[in-house]
Write a protein that binds this DNA or RNA. Structure first.
Lengths: 233, 233
DNA sequence: GAGAATTTGTTCGTATGTATC
DNA sequence: TGATACATACGAACAAATTCT
């Protein structure tokens, strides 16, 4: 029977985001906590993620754990094989190349679409992200620097107001952050390209798409080179 | 009632999707068959997808149905809201714009990376897809034309040998095919740009990246314009 | 607005497939 | 290679939330 309930529902993404933690579905909570554990190094790359073990650790049953693992598989942090289980991804130089080439394509599209619709609020958000990065740099908190760096890039992508673009980009964000953690734990001095970030904000303020594209492409290329080098050795 | 498991066991060779159902998990089977139903118009855009109804239709429990719905949510064909259920997406002109702008960015990256590593096998696969499209055009099988068109573009993306690029692109393929079905059911004469496809193959054969990028960008822009126009009215 | 019905989220038991000794 | 242990895939029932009458 056709009911009236099929009508357009509210935007699910806006519902899921800022909500008290105990109201979130367990599957999302599992994904969130497991993500933190992986990015924090608790589960090293290649580790097996056993459903029953995670279920008892998080105090739920295996159902929500399956949901959470599926979500993290979507973001690329976890890889699942039929009947064999789930594992934390292991990153090679080829993976770094894939992530950065794709991020470049996506973020260049993002600035192109973002600048024409940017407001002062957009600029403010970018500046805040840079400030947060400076603060974390000052206290030598490498994980926080990486997170702030990604927040900066996320702000650019969000400014494009392009749902599918953001979704694709999010499929690379966690993997990028994992790379950053791995790099900064060995070579903490290689973090940040503060100059690039400021230049990019200036290009946004001037609504100069060409310059923003050039700066961002250069910025990502520098990062990519550093990363590829690290993961090749 | 024909169950997925039962059907696979009874007659593994001739299933509706010509895929070996007995070797894949039920969740994937549900996703595959539900995708065909949606793209075939059985479930119209906006339709509610009730887990219990799908479970009885496919002869499984709700577990695999949930897995299948999650998979189709990943490809963008289905949208789920916490505690409210899953729905077939509804496409607006804004969605068309998003899909095509993102597809353009992804497929331009694809040709750029594919041409340097292309072999004669790559060219063959592209030609086969064009031939399949011609055959379907000759017999006025609109859904098959759309499927063959997407197979052509998929061949380009696969040729880039870039896992994450393919994954991102697949998040748009089903949505594009849904658009094509909706368009061709109303304006069947608007399908195909055969000239563009041949030109693109020529550019591949000549290893001319610049020309391939130009042709593909033009091709996608023409398609986008047609689509946006249709979905605006 | 309250209660009933429907539907989703969750839990747990069972069976099958995988890995190991 | 064969048997055993273990983890995942699936099914069925319970509980909570949303929608409809």
């Amino acid at each position: 029977m056709v009911t009236l309930r099929g009508m357009a529902a509210a935007d699910p993404t806006s519902v899921a985001d800022n909500r008290p933690l105990d109201r979130i579905e367990l599957g999302d909570a599992v994904a969130s906590r497991l993500r933190t554990l992986i990015l924090g190094g608790e589960f090293a790359p290649g580790s097996r993620l056993v459903e029953t073990e995670l279920a008892s650790r998080f105090g739920t049953s295996r159902g929500p754990v399956r949901d959470g693992l599926a979500e993290l598989e979507r973001t690329g942090l976890v890889r699942s094989v039929n009947r064999r289980g789930s594992f934390v991804i292991e990153l090679t130089a080829a993976d770094v190349d894939e992530v950065y080439s794709l991020r470049t394509a996506l973020e260049l599209l993002a600035v192109t679409r973002a600048i024409p619709v940017a407001t002062t609020a957009t600029i403010d958000r970018l500046s805040e992200a840079v400030n947060a990065m400076d603060v974390s740099l000052a206290v030598n908190d490498a994980p926080a620097v990486g997170a702030a760096d990604m927040a900066f890039h996320r702000a650019i992508v969000e400014a494009a107001q392009h749902r599918r673009l953001l979704q694709s980009w999010e499929g690379l964000a966690d993997q990028t952050e994992l790379m950053m953690q791995e790099l900064s734990s060995v070579r903490p001095e290689l973090q940040s390209n503060h100059g690039h970030h400021s230049e990019l904000i200036a290009a946004f303020a001037a609504r100069d798409v060409d310059r923003a594209v050039a700066v961002l492409a250069d910025h990502l290329d520098v990062s990519r080179t550093t990363m590829v080098e690290h993961f090749s050795s």
